[in-house]
């Protein structure tokens, strides 16, 4: 074996690795290799598809949510009305909420992007759709006429009452001053259960509309949708980014992305998302730059797995 360690540098110079190979050759038919590869992979693809198929859990709709978990639906609708839901206080790009958004040092990229997809949860999710009905509830005009403070006190009182009601059941709420809120939310529940709300919210984007932002945000504000994901191990704190429903392999290549969310100092940080995205961008760049980084590029020489790759060559040298 040579005494001088082999170079692992990326640099092109006058050595064996940099010169065109002038030594022994062997026949190697690239097109034949490709053809055999295509046949083998084809058999694998058809076989795996035939045996294992692919996952397709039906979408959740506002209708299926309102039917399966009416109490959760009403509580969420109340939060949308009162502006206390996750979406209502999200900030950019959906609305203006002071002091939200993740910061990297002093920079708040989220706020910088501005409100690009404006969403007013009370109007877009609740009062707007209700006003489309043939007989909009009387309560709608009471709500529209009321002052902001008044609306907030109604919704917060109703939210509290719902939490205290047996099974959070809206029909068993104690008597109180909730203004038009119970009437609005129960009308919305009825509208959703009939399947009219899905179309109403989707229709806000116009006749041709492939943008599901509003519907998905509304679903995500409730506990039902999140609960379904949680039950299927899909949430972020369950390495869910990698996972697919059922036993189907998912995006296992996102393991490192997912990993950082499980590290308490990163995943628990207020700006976890921006940290993780930053770390992953950095690591990807580092992977690309491995040939330039002493140490990282030298490991293959220290742990000589290459002797297995080129065992034929080393045997005959």
């Amino acid at each position: 074996m040579s005494k001088i360690p082999a170079s692992v540098s990326w640099r092109s110079k006058d050595d064996i690795a940099s010169r065109a190979w002038t030594g022994k050759k062997r026949e190697y038919d690239l097109f034949k290799e490709l053809t055999v590869g295509v046949i083998v992979v084809g058999v694998l693809v058809v076989g795996l598809s035939a045996v294992f198929s692919s996952p397709d859990e039906p979408s959740v709709t506002l209708k299926s949510w309102a039917t399966a978990a009416p109490a959760d639906f009403v509580a969420t609708a109340t939060a949308e009305l009162g502006g206390t839901s996750g979406t209502a206080g999200y900030g950019a790009p959906y609305n203006n909420t002071p002091d939200v958004g993740q910061k990297l040092g002093p920079i708040n990229l989220q706020s910088l992007s501005g409100v690009q997809i404006p969403i007013d949860t009370a109007v877009d999710f609740v009062t707007g759709p209700l006003s489309l009905q043939a007989n909009p509830p009387q309560a709608l005009s009471t709500w529209t006429a009321a002052a902001t403070d008044q609306r907030a006190s109604w919704t917060s009182a109703y939210t509290d009452a719902l939490t205290k009601a047996p099974n959070n059941d809206p029909t068993q709420v104690a008597v109180g001053d909730y203004g038009p809120v119970p009437a609005l939310t129960s009308s919305l529940l009825a509208m959703a259960q009939q399947g009219a709300l899905d179309g109403a919210i989707q229709g806000e984007g116009g006749f041709f509309n492939l943008d599901y932002t509003r519907s998905i945000l509304f679903l995500g504000d409730g506990a039902y949708f999140v609960g379904l994901a949680d039950g299927a191990h899909l949430t972020g704190d369950q390495w869910g980014m990698m996972n697919e429903t059922g036993n189907y392999p998912g995006q296992s290549w996102l393991w490192l992305f997912s990993f950082w969310y499980q590290v308490p100092v990163v995943g628990g940080a207020a700006n976890a998302d921006i940290l993780v995205v930053g770390i992953m961008l950095l690591l990807t760049v580092l992977l690309g730059l491995v040939p330039f980084i002493p140490g990282l590029r030298t490991i293959p020489r220290w742990i000589p797995i290459h002797r297995l790759v080129w065992k034929d060559y080393y045997k005959r040298r």
């Binding site: 996952p55 859990e57 399966a68 978990a69 109490a71 959760d72 959070n168 506990a223 039902y224 609960g227 379904l228 994901a229 949680d230 039950g231 299927a232 191990h233 704190d237 369950q238 390495w239 990698m242 996972n243 697919e244 429903t245 059922g246 036993n247 189907y248 392999p249 998912g250 296992s252 393991w255 499980q262």
Partner: peptide, 24 residues
């Protein structure tokens, strides 16, 4: 809420908070 999950969950292996899905 006690929500009956009707989404197929799959089989998971793991230790504590680390859980890996069988397909992966």
């Amino acid at each position: 809420l006690s929500i009956p999950s009707d989404i197929t969950g799959g089989t998971y292996f793991g230790w504590g908070s680390f859980q890996i899905q069988s397909g992966n």
